[in-house]
Nucleic acid binder design. Structure first.
Lengths: 115, 115
DNA sequence: TTAGGATATAACTATTTGCTTATATGTTCA
DNA sequence: TGAACATATAAGCAAATAGTTATATCCTAA
């Protein structure tokens, strides 16, 4: 049923990244849709640099990719990563972060003006 | 297809434990069969206390259970753990540790005398 | 009952980690 | 062009982590 093994070393690095509550929640949110940094900031009780640093680690490991759209930088899950099958599998075991996602939608940080 | 979600907090704790090369390898070995501490010692280049401490963390999290058999303490995967489905799923993505298991069989540390 | 082997615990240390604040960089728009 | 916003990086710090050595505990067998 399953396939495409990773080396233990590589897998443990990915699992270590996912073994942090903040990063695991970020991945669960990105599993719903891509998000920009300011959207993620809405649902974590920590500073902007802290979120940026988590995202950098995830990006360095190839788990996410970034795309600048104007003044915002959007992050999304990198489905071409060798680790993607493992990641996807892990995400099956944690609940969808619908509450946090609603919080993002409600606050809508990329639309401050209302025009 | 998948089921029985864990809370993010609980899942991240389990993933953090698996996010260590030594512990992940231990779990992969225990996935083949139960092993005593002295058998595990054969395949890791570190001290006995270090292995014991890793096993303790895994036991505290409920991922493994221990059973004393005479002078040896055997560890095995705790299949009744809430985290077992996640663990099993993760282990699908890393290669079977057959080489290390052969090393254990060859050295056979629980049979020093040969009687 | 004591010696020796197997394992666990204690105490210590160096490294890593996750956060903070301060600051730099990049983008938009008046 | 420069003010304001979004994001990244730098530097520093406290806590967590993974290893070590020394020692305690538990079991077997002579």
């Amino acid at each position: 049923m399953q396939q495409v093994k990773m080396e233990v070393e590589q897998a443990s690095l990915v699992l270590k990244l996912l073994g942090d509550k903040t990063r695991l929640t970020i991945m669960a949110l990105l599993n719903i849709r891509e998000l920009c940094v300011c959207e993620l900031l809405e649902v974590f009780d920590m500073s902007q640099p802290s979120i940026s640093q988590h995202l950098r680690k995830l990006k360095d490991a190839g788990l996410v990719k970034e795309e600048r759209k104007g003044q915002w930088v959007y992050y999304s899950i990198n489905k071409t990563s060798d680790a993607y099958p493992l990641l996807e599998s892990v995400l099956h075991y944690i609940p969808e972060q619908t509450e946090k996602m609603e919080q993002i939608i409600k606050s809508n940080p990329t639309l401050r003006c209302g025009c």
